[in-house]
């Protein structure tokens, strides 16, 4: 059993930086880390393949960054494909999906896992786009995943509960945060990660025209970036045993109680 996991390296959400006013994108000159959302997919993959399976990471960046990838390898993934190319800068969701799909195709996995969305871009469409590009069935927003004799069974989050969905492999599944408890890399894992194979590819290696991805491929333009109207802060008080009374008074004023 081979599982490919899409992982994204992003600026630390605790310190996301700012928009670059010239390129109108998020500044990425900071150190990139593994998107926490993706750690659930990595953990899920490790649990699903068990002892004899294989977990391959799939990632793309414009600048050779490997820090986040190393973290996922240290968790226990076996290898990685990193598509790194200057022309990837500014890629939108569809361009991203085209690159990831081309990289995944090389590994011929039984199952592709992805997070439901990244923590920096949040488009939330990439998994489904990758599935369509690969001609695979997919189940998104999984909160539980089990594999049994060539089938994947998923509990899929819905607006008012969940659906049980059955799907033959190969397939793509996107997992919600919190579905499993991601392991911390052990010291042994961190040391082992250094010698794990990372295949670094360019767009040319994948046969993708640079004009179909990045800025050109997006076919959209950012017209403006403006501060949003601010919400005024109200009254802030220190609780001296009477905090709850202030809340009660507020709720009474709002006619809630």
């Amino acid at each position: 059993m081979k599982v490919a996991v899409c992982v994204k390296q992003i600026p630390d959400p605790a310190d996301p930086g700012a928009m670059n006013p010239e390129t109108k994108t998020l500044k990425r000159d900071v150190k990139l880390i593994l998107d926490e959302s993706d750690s659930y997919g990595v953990e899920m993959a490790l649990q699903l393949v068990g002892e004899d399976g294989e977990v391959v990471l799939i990632s793309m960046v414009p600048n050779n960054e490997r820090n986040g990838l190393n973290n996922a390898l240290a968790m226990g993934a076996d290898s990685a494909i990193l598509v790194s190319d200057d022309a990837l800068a500014g890629s939108d969701a569809l361009s991203t999906a085209k690159v990831l799909a081309a990289a995944i195709q090389r590994t011929e996995p039984d199952l592709v896992l992805a997070a439901t969305e990244s923590s920096d871009g949040y488009t939330g469409t990439v998994p489904e786009q990758v599935a369509e590009l690969l001609g695979l069935p997919s189940v998104t927003f999984a909160k539980e995943v089990t594999i049994d004799s060539g089938n994947v069974a998923v509990k899929r989050q819905t607006e008012d509960g969940y659906d049980e969905v059955d799907c033959p492999l190969p397939a793509l599944v996107s997992v919600t945060a919190g579905v499993v408890e991601p392991r911390y890399p052990s010291f042994k894992g961190i040391m082992a990660a250094k010698s794990k194979p990372v295949e670094e590819l360019t767009l040319a290696d994948l046969g993708i025209e640079t004009s179909t991805v990045g800025w050109a491929g997006g076919r959209q333009e950012i017209v403006s970036i403006e501060p949003a109207p601010e919400r005024e802060a109200g009254e802030i008080i220190e609780d001296e045993g009477d905090g709850h009374e202030r809340i009660v008074a507020f709720l009474q004023e709002m006619k809630v109680i």
Binding site: A93, Y122, T123, G124, E128, Q129, T140
Partner: peptide
């Protein structure tokens, strides 16, 4: 929504059309 994002993602590939989200 869960369903909206599924259909939109598939459709964007079918039409080779980009999406503007959120």
């Amino acid at each position: 929504t869960y369903g909206g994002r599924d259909v939109a993602g598939r459709l964007s590939v079918k039409m080779d059309a980009p999406v503007i989200t959120n």
